[in-house]
Amino acid sequence: MAIVEVKNLSKTFDAAGGTTTALNHINLSIEEGDVFGIIGMSGAGKSTLVRCLNLLEVPTEGQVIVEGKDLTALTNKELREERGRIAMIFQSFNLLQQKNVISNVCVPMMIQGKKKSEAKKRAKELLELVCLQDKARSYPSQLSGGQCQRVAIARALASDPKILLCDEATSALDPQTTNQILDLLKEINQKLKITIIIITHQMSVVQKICNRVAIIDHGEIAEMGEVEEIFTHPKSQAGRVLVIDGTQEVGTSDRQKAVELLKEKKRIRIVFSKNSSYEPVIANMVLAVGKPVNILKADTQDVGGVARGQMILGLPDDADAQEKMIAYLKDHNLAVEEVQA
């Protein structure tokens, strides 16, 4: 059974000059043990969606069913208890600034009415898990962003949750720290068997740790499925923008302009997936066909010795060479598709 099920969820806000629809009839189902990504551009409604999952935002319509319980039908008291099982971390960490690290980690346990000595003991263990045991007496203002997020993760785990919601948890961090936090989340998912739901606008985050992903666009789910599948063959417009524009900020990209200026008419996108072989495939293709290609965009990373990621190539105008090149790439187990100029 799904651990989180969202049924026909809508959320509208009353604003000056009419109502705006933030979420429009969303249906989602997240399995236990998933690292589920919810990706979308800013304003797509993803933050509203994640806040509906623990009812920080009350849906206008629809149901949120967590571990078989319909949250929208609970009393206030029952809802507060249930929230102990759905932890959350935030883009801006949201630690209590006037409390030191260990007191911050104790907060969920104090809310649940645990004994102070027990809470302190558990908090120490959690700080060890996030490698911050030596910062127990520090205050958040004395820590770096990455350290703050680690404290926030330790705090989130303090109530022994089954689900961890991450609202743009790495967006305020540099790439290296982002990777460390993502590794930590992955570890938590695997070791503690906590289902993780990640809200992000970065495809790289989804690629790194999620197994399933939903793309949200204008308050609706544009598409949803296995990360590998969606990355290789994005079907929706929003999906294509997110995947092909990839790591760069969506919208205003100078690089996009540069690509448009190039003269090649025929462009293909190739995706390196887990089936890709270990060889310099582009270079070999050029040698085999005897014509050059233009690499318009390359975004690959080495995962266990195999290239993963994507490239966009501008092919020579010669139709025969184009055909040969595509055939060559397909022979080497690469997903190839044409992209529009």
Partner: peptide, 13 residues
Amino acid sequence: DAGEIEAVQSMGA
């Protein structure tokens, strides 16, 4: 900070 309040609300405070 509204974020701090939201954080403890998410913990069931």
